[in-house]
Design a protein around this nucleic acid. Structure first.
Lengths: 224, 224
DNA sequence: TTCTCCATTAGCCAAAAGTCGAAGACCGGG
DNA sequence: CCCGGTCTTCGACTTTTGGCTAATGGAGAA
């Protein structure tokens, strides 16, 4: 058989380890590729566009909320994606599915559930924890519009937008990406057009529509 | 007995009506003062600093999230406040209490519960819907810090900050508040200092920590 | 190959954002 | 009554943003 390739994107080494184990349990001889930040995620999905599954944490360095999910899905529509998150709010799960995830695995899940979820999604099913309904519609028009606009961005544009949402100056972004400020301005102008806004504050607000207001952030970090 | 004064802050007339009725049922001869926006809320709590209870909606024109709660509480620490919201997420309720609310009444509550909640808080108790626990800690350090900083703002500064979070230009804020742009800039500089940031994007991000990511926003608007 | 899209950069210019210092109003204490 | 503090207001000045034009090179599609 052809060797399966799985991508694990999570900034926490221990979780990557656990997820990797669940994946290798599910499929023997699988290749696991790891990412721990937005840039490494972008590189990874680009280098392995033939991957069979992406396990994606909301909230990595460089992105938070559903932005990364919406964007990755638009770049690789055929790459099945399971969101793995410390959050276990059913509405968050439904929003994740709405933004293109094939499954949602809370980090609090027993190991067996993680394996079952992975297996289900590899089989082409949608998976959420038992007892969570999926049919509710919890994405308002603004959120959907923001997701659609973000899906339209290029990799560079997405990266720059995420840095905008950290409150960085053009100069700082240029320095971190090692390009000139003129380049950043060009990207930002393109981003504004696609998002339908005309200044960075409005761009940030648009992205915030995809935010997860994570009431489980603390517990997640502590238990993680 | 001295006449009781109650403040009802909600942008929806029908809800104000219902809440008013619940209040007059609870205390006969009570004076009800209404507010339907941030400016009217600020005016009202200022004109009636001796009020006995504030019923406060999250999400009015001009504010959303816990910002208004945190700020009003800091200005009037002795004014008991019940948050009234379309949201019924237990974590949101706990966050409201954490930010100084004495109670939380979902708009979906039966009328009797609303009356009971009001009576309980007037008695000095804390009230949340049956079955909701209160002891969990769901406010992270960042959110608490943002709330503390916001609590430190003057009325004008708070108002300007909320307009910043709507993506308005200084010019637009100046026009709406009928002062010069220089004045707005001065306010904004003061806000930055108190929030510990140095540009408007970061200020907006700080405020977003107090946002309620309202999965019930749509339903709320429709049913409201 | 030609055409299009992307990334990169420069330069220019107008607008917006932010900083500083300062003046007047107000308020509470001494 | 005077003093110190805070709030609001504002103009002057500097920096950052953002829009526009234009040029280069590369990747990919028709």
């Amino acid at each position: 058989m052809t060797a399966a390739t799985f991508i694990v994107a999570d900034d926490h080494p221990l979780f990557r380890e656990a997820l990797t184990r669940a994946l290798t349990n599910s499929v023997s001889g699988a290749t696991i590729v790891e990412a721990d930040s937005l840039p490494s995620l972008q590189r990874t999905v680009d280098d392995h566009s033939d991957a069979d599954l992406l396990l994606l944490d909301l909230n990595m360095p460089g992105v938070s909320g559903f932005s990364a999910l919406a964007w990755v899905r638009s770049q690789h529509p055929t790459l099945p994606t399971i969101v793995v998150s410390a959050n276990d709010d059913p509405n968050v799960m439904r929003r994740a599915l709405r933004h293109g995830a094939s499954g949602f695995i809370p980090k609090s899940s027993p190991f067996g559930d993680i394996e079952r979820g992975i297996a289900a999604v590899l089989d082409g099913d949608v998976w959420v924890p038992e007892g969570v309904s999926v049919d509710d519609d919890v994405v308002d028009d603004g959120e959907a519009a923001a997701a659609a606009a973000i899906a339209d961005l290029t990799a560079h544009q997405f990266r720059v937008l995420m840095m905008l949402t950290e409150g960085l100056l053009n100069k700082q972004i240029a320095y971190q990406l090692d390009v000139s400020e003129a380049t950043i301005k060009a990207h930002i102008t393109a981003i504004f057009r696609k998002l339908g806004v005309n200044n960075r504050t409005q761009a940030v607000l648009a992205v915030q529509r995809l935010a997860v207001n994570d009431p489980a952030r603390l517990e997640g970090l502590q238990s993680g």
